[in-house]
């Protein structure tokens, strides 16, 4: 509630922004453009000013608060904005990102079961798959995909010896692997279009862990997070 000298019936000095117009009673009414944040005050007559009213100029057409909450001040603009958001989500999650939820332990401790992430379909358009990339690999489709790490590149020779990866007979430094089981596997020559892919969790026997040479076309993209 605004309390000022007007409440005592004293004549109020006219401000530069105020205008005097003839009202319905024939007497002059003072119209003051009030800022939006004093709307609550604007509709309330000030004591001692019986011959003058103060109008905000917008009170009559203002939508109810619940309308503002539901559809905004401008429903048409809100509808356009919602449509734009929906289109953006459809394009991003339909063409660019695949949202995923980790459902197996093969990438622990880097990615834990239940963690949410996304695979970027466009990531390999600009940079080819590289060693160390965590990638999504398709099966029959893209509803269920493998989440693995690239350790071997096309044309390389790769083998596991006592749990350590050797690329062209050189040991590979893998700081992301903890407590590897002593896997021993025969050397594998990767083709021109093949990448060797394996999970970070190598604590289980090798036969229980999906890994091997996947074709380039099976790699969907890098994980985002």
């Amino acid at each position: 509630m605004f309390i000022g000298p007007e409440s005592h019936g004293a004549p109020r000095p006219k401000k530069p922004c105020e205008t005097e117009e003839p009202g319905p009673s024939g007497r002059n009414e003072v119209k003051t453009p009030l800022p939006n944040w004093v709307d609550g005050l604007g509709s309330e007559p000030i004591q001692g000013m019986s011959d003058a009213t103060i109008e905000s100029g917008e009170t009559g057409s203002r939508p109810a608060w619940w309308q503002v909450v539901l559809v905004g001040r401008n429903p048409r603009f809100t509808a356009v904005r919602i449509a734009a958001y929906v289109l953006l989500v459809v394009v991003v999650f339909g063409c660019i990102l695949i949202p995923i939820k980790v459902a197996g332990p093969s990438m622990e401790p880097t990615y834990k079961i239940g963690q949410v992430n996304a695979v970027n379909r466009l990531s390999f358009k600009f940079h080819p798959p590289a060693r160390g990339d965590v990638v999504g690999v398709r099966m029959a489709g893209e509803s269920v995909i493998y989440l693995k790490r690239i350790v071997g590149l096309p044309g390389e020779r790769i083998r596991f010896r006592r749990g350590k990866v050797y690329i062209n007979d050189e040991p590979l430094d893998e700081p992301y692997v903890r407590h590897p089981a002593p896997w021993n596997e025969a050397e594998m020559q990767l083709g021109d279009d093949e990448f060797f892919i394996v999970g970070d969790n190598r604590t289980m026997p090798a036969k229980d862990h999906t890994h091997g040479a996947f074709r380039r076309s099976d790699l969907i993209g890098r994980v985002v997070l």
């Binding site: 790769i158 896997w183 596997e185 025969a186 594998m188 892919i197 090798a206 091997g212 040479a213």
Partner: peptide, 11 residues
């Protein structure tokens, strides 16, 4: 069962 990749030979 289909294996969509080449599996290494476990020794």
């Amino acid at each position: 069962a289909v294996l969509g990749y080449r599996k290494p030979v476990i020794q």
